[in-house]
Simulated assay, not measured.
Amino acid sequence: MELPLVVGVDGSESSLRAVDWAADEAALHGVPLRLVNASMWERYEGVVPDKSPDRPSEQVMAENIVGSAAERARRRDPDLKILTDVLPDDTVTALLREGRNASALVTGSRGRSGLAEMLLGSVSLAVAARADCPVIVIRGGHDTRSGVHRRIVLGVDKPPQGLAAVRFAFQEARARRAALHAVRAWRCPAHETAEHPLLAQDAAHYHESEAAQTLEEALREAAADHPDVELHRATAEGPARKVLMNASAAADLLIVGAQRRHEHFGLQLGRVAHAMLHHSVCPVAVVPQRT
Rank of each mutant, 00 (worst) to 15 (best):
A22N: 05
A23I: 14
A23E: 11
V31C: 13
V31R: 14
P32Y: 14
L35V: 03
L35E: 00
V36P: 05
S39Y: 03
S39D: 15
M40W: 00
W41E: 14
W41V: 14
Y44K: 12
E45P: 02
G46E: 04
P49L: 04
K51Y: 03
S52T: 02
P56Q: 06
E58H: 08
E58S: 13
V60L: 06
N64F: 02
N64R: 13
V66C: 05
G67N: 14
E71H: 10
E71I: 10
A73S: 05
R75Q: 14
R75A: 14
K81S: 15
D89M: 13
T91M: 08
T93V: 07
A94V: 05
L96K: 06
R97H: 02
E98D: 09
N101G: 09
S103Q: 01
R110S: 12
R112M: 09
R112N: 11
L115P: 10
L120E: 08
S124K: 08
A126P: 00
D132R: 07
P134D: 13
I138Q: 01
R139H: 01
H142P: 02
T144V: 12
S146G: 08
R150M: 13
R150C: 04
R151E: 11
V153Q: 10
G155A: 08
D157P: 04
G162R: 10
A164G: 10
